[in-house]
């Protein structure tokens, strides 16, 4: 039992005891005042309020303790994600500084340091993106985007970044790519995060299918399906919470900040869309679907015209 579990158990027990005390006092009150109606009714109402207050208080307390725990997990994960690439880069820089190293090795070391810098950059980006999506006021700069082209670009980048064969991630898109209205960079972040997760939780055997579909005339789906470790049913919603990471024995070697899916959800909502996860259970892979409103084809032209007008008359925008 961790300290937090103990704290939760303590407060829940305290709440139960206080509620029990209040209930027995209430029963006593009912007996004493059984003949006069006014104190009886007033007393019962007051006791009901006290009991309800106790329960609400305890529930909030327990939720707060749990949030604190997620926050600690996050700090630990981010500390690790920030310090590890820095430690690695320092190690190689000091090696280069203090030893005679042949040219080939030197190039190897540069490549390793570049990869570390990329990893650091990625973590910083995630943290900043999560911070930005916490601020609701930030408006999305929208432009029409070809969902198929977006998916294709993300798949290409993911294959390169994870050094995968072309067959590891397949792509299935309709010939005429459906158009969505949104911020190209943010939507690319969504698909990239989903793809990174799919690769990360595939335990080396990466077989990911990306598809773009139009399930209803006004809806576009971008789906990322993997055959990896899968997700337990009760985790399917929680994984989108900020800082949340699934705690399981065989997942502990998978590093992350617990921000990726939170960012995905925030961006999806800012685009009036949603994202959801499906899985048949542990070991059976998972499917993530990004659902966005489809931009009607006839609406594309005016929107583009609007964008052009804005570009040619920047002072009008103000």
């Amino acid at each position: 039992m961790t300290r937090r579990q103990k704290a939760i158990a303590f407060f829940v027990t305290l709440c139960v005891l206080l509620v029990a005390a209040a209930v027995s006092l209430n029963i006593g009150w009912v007996f004493i005042n059984s003949r006069s109606l006014a104190p009886l009714v007033l007393g019962v109402i007051s006791f009901a309020l006290i009991i309800a207050g106790l329960i609400v208080y305890t529930v909030f307390l327990v939720l707060e303790i749990k949030r604190n725990e997620d926050h600690d997990t996050f700090i630990n994960a981010v500390t690790h994600e920030l310090k590890t690439p820095i430690a690695s880069m320092r190690l190689y820089l000091q090696t280069l500084q203090s030893r005679d190293i042949d040219e080939q090795r030197r190039q190897e070391f540069y490549a390793i340091m570049l990869a570390d810098a990329d990893r650091l950059h990625h973590t910083v980006d995630q943290v900043l993106a999560a911070g930005a999506s916490g601020q609701k006021a930030k408006a999305v700069i929208r432009s029409p985007i070809d969902a198929s082209a977006l998916a294709r670009d993300c798949v290409r980048l993911a294959l390169a970044r994870h050094h995968l064969d072309a067959g590891a991630i397949t792509l299935d898109t309709p010939a005429d790519g459906p158009t969505v209205n949104g911020d190209a960079e943010q939507l690319a972040t969504v698909v990239t995060n989903l793809l990174d997760n799919a690769v990360k939780y595939s335990a080396g055997n990466v077989r990911v299918a990306v598809s773009v579909a139009v399930p209803a005339p006004d809806t576009v789906w971008i789906r990322v399906q993997d055959r990896g470790m899968g997700i337990a049913p009760k985790q399917l919603k929680r994984i989108f919470k900020r800082f949340y990471r699934v705690q399981a024995r065989d997942l502990r070697n998978i590093k992350g900040t617990g921000l990726g899916l939170y960012i995905v959800r925030s961006i999806a909502r800012a685009h009036n869309g949603r994202v959801f996860a499906q899985s048949e259970g542990l070991g059976r892979g998972a499917t993530f679907t990004l659902e966005l409103p489809r931009l009607a084809t006839d609406a594309v032209t005016p929107a583009e015209g609007q964008a052009d007008a804005d570009a040619s008359h920047p002072e009008v925008v103000k």
Binding site: T84, P85, A87, S88, L91, Y92, T95, R99, I112, N253
Partner: peptide, 16 residues
């Protein structure tokens, strides 16, 4: 060490 970069860097230096 599970971080391969750090493990390789340490190995290189210790062998040196």
């Amino acid at each position: 060490e599970d971080e391969q970069h750090i493990a390789d860097g340490l190995r290189f230096n210790l062998e040196a």
